[in-house]
Design a binder for these strands. Structure first.
Lengths: 340, 340
DNA sequence: GCGGAAACTCGAAACGTTTCGAGTTACCGT
DNA sequence: ACGGTAACTCGAAACGTTTCGAGTTTCCGC
């Protein structure tokens, strides 16, 4: 109701308790001092409902730690990044830090703008999913996650995109498939490029010169990249499956692309004839018919690892920048086990 | 490399430009003053790479606005809340504010703790998804979202849970169903209670005294509440469908419960015989067989509305607390149109 | 060239806190 | 009872910024 009343400050507490400002500060920071004074001060605090202003405290304190970090992702609304955010926040909270999140929407200009906005709030560090036009190294400790930065060599936590793709393609080959289609994301994205590399690397002869169709070696017509979103993937999958000598299996390298391919297979009635392995898990994947076999990432783990690395830097770790790689797991549910 | 160099301050800029501190402040805040000085100051700023400390600025400024808000949800990792967060952040960014998000994990103690942590950072306001044990009204402007607070009457933005449930059940009744099973979440949750109320309200005779089975009026054995998670929903759905006189349709009132029911129907081979409408949309819902008919929420809209309401309060809107209701939409995909 | 207003700049004080050095009190052994 | 020291408290200064009142310069019309 009468909310216009000023927040009480340490000065108010000191006046009410009849002690000096610095004594209140000491007590608030956990050094009891004389028991009777501590008592009076605590009573005054309770009476006034005093709460310490963390920003003013940060300003003066010698370590200047704001107990807050920034998280810059492409889009918090995307479940993958949301899970990363969850992991970051979890570790931050353990450390008593709060997390400021911002979505760059893959726009480098916005990314820069948000990074400086966070830096202006004096965050202790930054966890960043970098966009294509990555900014130079920042003044504040930074750990990159999910994608490496373009120019700097810096602390980075990545999914094993290459290994995951190899596992997917190897799995399909083990079920007899030799003509395996690849549907991938924008090729400028590090993750997309790595997954394509894994796909190419699991073919028996990765030499780009040899493209012997019958042996299951690389056939460029089986590779579709730069698909943006589910609809584009649907179209590409339909075209691939309707073409001459169509693939007997698909590897879809991103979650929206996977859903597009699933729809395409159903639309053509091929969901039980053409095998499919997707990169990144999806809710309901097990409820499909057939169940969807995927290479699952561990986004929460990714976020946790990035945050831990960041806090070790904040704590003064001056070692060389390092890169951590989080493994994937192949989740077998049916769609990937359809034999040729 | 040599990162231990202190950040430049306004004082440094003033010294380099040969002007007073207050002149620098004016220029930084957009009042040019004498052109030659403004020029010298701008050069000094560029040379030093000066960036204004937003926290110190907040401390001194008379409006005390920190240009940051807090968002307290059950779990950012949950796609629904992630979408809410996205909506909130979008509006905040338009206003030049950053968003600090924190996950309460439905724990009232943690909720309180996080709320004070955010308040200590002097956020301008709070958007909160309240837990069961809601805290009293806070000292900082607060808007509740997705669920109403328990004790205060305060600004709130809600999904039309009742209306959505009515739409779902009405839809099923229109396809001839009279025995409709209800599977719901923890009944202490406002959302769960409202959806149950909607279910009950769409039966022809909502009087709890009359439970005429043959007419499709309320049969208590068709209602299962307090299901926590997908597995519990799976079990409950199986039990319901295997019982005597089983329902011919199901209304599942939460997304995890929906996935459990989908699995149960498939496990029993009933997915084409028993109708299903779920509350809250899911990725891949259209790729199921049959496609999953749902009552879709608009979480991003929810977040946007909450943030807009919050900023109007921050801007000094002193009107009575209000409640906004965001409508749902019925997305028809097949599972809800199976006739009796 | 002059008075006066407008436009600008300056220094000091303030925001809420922590830190520092100096001052005060309490306590100990002898 | 005394000196010495440990434990504590106090006031003032500082963190980086904005604000305020007072001082200075600029510019205009006459």
């Amino acid at each position: 109701m009468s909310a216009d009343t000023r927040r009480p400050t340490m000065k108010d507490v000191a006046a009410l308790a009849g002690v000096s400002l610095s004594t209140v500060s000491r007590v608030v920071n956990g050094d009891p001092g004389r028991p009777d004074l501590a008592r009076r001060i605590q009573d005054a605090i309770d009476l006034l409902g005093y709460e310490r202003d963390h920003t003013a405290s940060t300003l003066r304190r010698t370590d200047r730690a704001s107990a807050s970090i920034g998280l810059l992702v492409a889009d918090v609304g995307n479940p993958f990044f949301a899970a990363v955010a969850r992991g970051v926040e979890e570790i931050a909270r353990e450390r008593g830090s709060v997390t400021m999140v911002a979505s760059s929407d893959e726009d480098p200009a916005r990314e820069r703008e948000l990074a400086t906005a966070l830096a202006a709030r004096r965050v202790d560090g930054l966890v960043v999913v970098p966009t294509d036009g990555s900014p130079g190294p920042a003044r504040v400790p930074t750990v990159f996650v999910d994608r490496p930065p373009r120019y700097a060599d810096a602390d980075t936590v990545l999914t094993d995109n290459f290994g995951g793709a190899v596992a997917a393609v190897t799995h399909l080959r083990a079920h007899g498939h030799r003509r395996i289609g690849f549907l991938g994301d924008r090729s400028t994205l590090h993750t997309a490029a790595e997954r394509l590399r894994g796909y190419l690397g699991s073919l028996p002869d990765p030499s780009p010169a040899r493209t012997d169709l019958s042996s299951g070696r690389l056939d460029p017509s089986l590779v579709r990249t730069d698909l943006e979103g589910s609809a584009a993937a649907f179209d590409a999958a339909c075209a691939l499956l309707r073409g001459d000598d169509p693939p007997t299996a698909l590897f879809t390298a991103q979650n929206l692309i996977t859903t597009g391919a699933v729809r395409a297979l159903r639309a053509l009635g091929l969901q039980h004839r053409v095998a499919l392995v997707g990169f990144d898990d999806l809710p309901l994947a097990d409820a499909l018919d057939p169940g969807l076999t995927v290479v699952a990432q561990q986004p929460v783990t990714l976020g946790r690892a990035a945050a831990r690395l960041l806090f070790s830097r904040i704590d003064g770790d001056r070692a060389e920048p390092r890169t951590e790689v989080v493994p994937t797991t192949l989740v077998v549910r049916g769609s990937g086990e359809i034999a040729r």
